[in-house]
């Protein structure tokens, strides 16, 4: 009776999910499943490995559970063995431990490898640096190499790593562009690095993943990935046609509100911490950051 019901429940869930997936646009909205760069692709690969391993475990448990439920129900004439004192079986217990350890190892090895691999920008590529400050409730982007600044919008060149140096002049947020890769916190008085790369041109949305107050839903921005040439043109346009940011402009940005994207041909250096906790942040890679010489 209840087995039939739980079967029905499973069928209903699958059906509901199928409808949900199809209604929501044939899967293109599943941004994590559609990576547009090496970091997101590598992370998706790990998600697939862990998901596949875990689905095997889930199915194993469901099947064993289902068999136990059907075979050993208390009903008249049930011929299945009844052994009320059967409470251990060395081989079975070792088997369970072995299965668990194997599953854990399958996940642990790529976790180890990828954690270290993704921590560094691949050798031989020169990253472009973008200094990111989360404000209430907007994103300020500064390009120390190009000397321009933007709000809630960035252009990045394709096939070139982007090193984001993240800080906050507000409560904590996380900087997240799902199609380019995972997120990292922005915290006041800390600067955290995160590198991402876009391998194909496109417009990718980004948002904050950490609640930061009543304007939190407006903590969104767009990342426009274009060729290096188009990027250079864009930088040139911003530098020649947009006004520079003054300290007064910066203080305006600190107000508790949300605004449309803005562009500045220059910005005051004092708006981003030059050094934090003894590290210099001038374009260095995460593992290679050196203490500032005194």
């Amino acid at each position: 009776m209840s087995l039939k019901r739980s079967k029905r429940a499973i069928r209903f869930t699958v059906l509901a999910l199928a409808i949900g997936l199809s209604v929501s646009g044939c899967g293109n909205d599943f941004v994590i499943l559609h990576p547009a760069g090496p970091v997101a692709a590598s992370e998706l690969n790990l998600i697939e490995i862990t998901a596949a391993t875990m689905i095997v475990i889930i199915l194993l448990v469901w099947v064993l559970f289902g068999i136990a439920l059907v075979r050993f129900r208390e009903k008249p004439g049930n011929q299945a063995p009844y052994r009320p004192l059967w409470d251990h079986n060395r081989a079975l217990e070792l088997g369970v431990i072995a299965v668990s350890v194997v599953a854990a190892t399958i996940i642990a090895i790529p976790t180890w490898n990828k954690t270290f691999a993704l921590d560094r920008i691949p050798a031989g590529k020169t990253p472009i640096v973008i200094d990111v400050t989360s404000l209430d409730w907007k994103w300020l982007f500064e390009y120390p190499g190009q000397h321009i600044a933007t709000v809630n919008y960035i252009d990045v060149p394709t096939n070139r790593p982007v090193l984001f140096e993240l800080t906050a002049n507000s409560p904590m947020n996380t900087f997240w562009v799902p199609q380019l890769g995972g997120m990292e916190y922005t915290m006041p008085s800390e600067v955290l690095p995160l590198w991402l790369e876009a391998s194909k041109p496109g417009l990718y949305w980004g948002r904050s993943g950490n609640f930061s107050g009543s304007g939190f839903v407006h903590m969104t921005f767009d990342v426009h990935a274009v060729s290096q040439a188009a990027f250079d043109t864009w930088v040139h346009t911003v530098r020649t046609t947009k006004p520079p940011m003054t300290m007064a402009d910066y203080r305006q940005l600190l107000k508790f509100n949300w605004i449309a994207p803005r562009y500045y041909s220059a910005y005051p250096a004092a708006t981003f911490p030059a050094e934090t906790h003894g590290f210099t942040l001038e374009g260095g890679m995460y593992m290679e950051m050196q203490p500032t010489p005194k």
Partner: peptide, 17 residues
């Protein structure tokens, strides 16, 4: 199972929050 998926560090970068 999804907890283990969250424990795989680089995957968590996408799942966090």
């Amino acid at each position: 199972a999804t907890g283990v998926m969250l424990g795989a560090v680089p995957a968590d970068y996408q799942f966090h929050n």
